[in-house]
Amino acid sequence: MEVKSALLGSSIVKKYWMALTGLFLCTFLVVHLGGNLILLKGEDARLSFNAYAKFMTTFPLIKAVSYLLYFSILFHAFDGIVLTLQNRAARPVKYYFNKPEANSTWASRNMAFLGTVILIFIVGHMSNFWYKMHFGDIPMDANGNKDLYEVVVTFFKDPSLGIVYVAFYVLCMVALGFHLVHGFASSFQTLGLYHKKYNALIKNLGLVFSVLVPLLFAIIPIFIYIQ
């Protein structure tokens, strides 16, 4: 009986899923970033970026993984909401005076807030680019591929709102960085991967990852805007 209820609702199993989907989303970030970096080639990137976008939306194996990705994003968010609601319910009366900064980092205490910012970003991001790529009526490039490059550049170079989009994008990447700086190392701890030999390595790897990945993502819209 305990095993069954554990699989469905146990606090620790919910955390395993948070860790596993979180780490999977980290691998997605790397792949996505790899593709986006093509954009830094400027106008030369048009044909190669569009070919890359076509490959990512049509190649069967990638398509299959993309469904796993959509599910992971939704599940990570859903699981996070359930955990957060339970955590809030666990302390119905708050402290009159609390000093949480004495014993924990800001990021570790604000994962739900940071996650919400990222989720809002994903919704906007997907409606601006993913939806247009899949279902939108967009022009073709010289090779007959959908010209996603044009969509991206037009979006961030918008004369009036472009700067707002770039600023919002950069801000969301900062949130992503803080989310990752706790989430990356935390997922290893949740999965029980704690060893004094490797703890520092995991923590430092997480720090590098959470600075480098959002930074490189953020550079791209800035580059497009000032280009």
Binding site: S11, K14, N87, R91, N103, S108, A185, T190
Partner: peptide, 9 residues
């Protein structure tokens, strides 16, 4: 009790 967020507090 609530769930663990690994804040380390």
């Amino acid at each position: 009790f609530g769930n663990c967020t690994n804040t380390g507090a």
